[in-house]
């Protein structure tokens, strides 16, 4: 089966002439897989995710999504298919509802049917956000709640692949456990393809999990 995502001979460096962050990187991600990318700080884990959704542009090499070069896919379309969730969750100064429905306000999402309040409330419960009201300010939530809300918002956009950047780095152990449980459910129950970057020892308890590690500028996968 053709991989959902193919990374071929990818190299990246921040400035022309500077030392590359990594070189000649290859990786395939199949539909339904849950790939965990580990490595030390500065090894290029987050950069890899940013390159996949073209928040950064590689020096050389190519990334194919469904056999099509991501550079040729209109950026809004690419990013709604491969959604990157930032390490520090970002909310706008608006209600929880408005934040969740943000993707439906953009030109690309306007033709999609926005979920109603009942659906949103059911999802809040599934994301361990019991007691969070759709009418309250999203800025007043805790970091852990914002992190779960940002993953929920990404899911509402129905992406083919989720890129999670250090999703538990700012969370206490209880919040991290909740998030791991959500990640595992997204993969096993909803079949979401996930690429998760972490510097922790987290290993998802899912059958389709695979672990890759950055070592000396190279990505080694199990």
């Amino acid at each position: 089966m053709q991989p959902l995502l193919e990374i071929r001979d990818l190299s990246f460096g921040y400035d022309k002439g500077s030392r590359p962050v990594f070189e000649h990187l290859d990786l395939d991600v199949r539909k339904g897989e849950c790939v965990v990318v580990k490595g030390a700080s500065g090894s290029g884990k987050s950069t890899l995710l940013r390159l996949i959704c073209r928040l950064n542009v590689p020096r050389s090499g190519e990334i194919l999504f469904k056999s099509k070069n991501v550079a040729e896919i209109p950026p809004p379309e690419l990013r709604s298919k491969i959604t990157y969730v930032q390490q520090i969750p970002q909310m706008t100064d608006a209600t929880v509802r408005d934040n969740l429905l943000l993707p439906f306000t953009f030109a690309l999402g306007q033709h999609k049917a926005a979920p109603d309040d009942a659906t949103l409330e059911r999802m809040l419960d599934a994301f361990y956000l019991h007691g969070v009201s759709l009418d309250q300010s999203a800025l007043k939530l805790s970091v852990g709640q914002k992190q779960r809300l940002s993953i929920m918002r990404a899911i509402l956009n129905e992406p083919d692949m989720l890129l999670l950047d250090e999703p538990t780095s700012a969370l206490d152990s209880d919040s991290a456990a909740m998030l791991f449980s959500i990640i595992e459910r997204l993969n096993t129950e909803e079949g979401k393809t996930l690429v998760i970057v972490t510097h922790s020892e987290y290993q998802p308890a899912v059958p389709q999990a695979r672990s890759c590690t950055f070592r000396n500028g190279k990505l080694e996968c199990a």
């Binding site: 990013r79 930032q86 706008t92 999402g109 990404a154």
Partner: peptide
């Protein structure tokens, strides 16, 4: 970070 969050959710620039 807010601009990039919107880009990631399918916003154009």
């Amino acid at each position: 970070d807010v601009v990039e969050m919107k880009l990631c959710l399918g916003a154009n620039y």
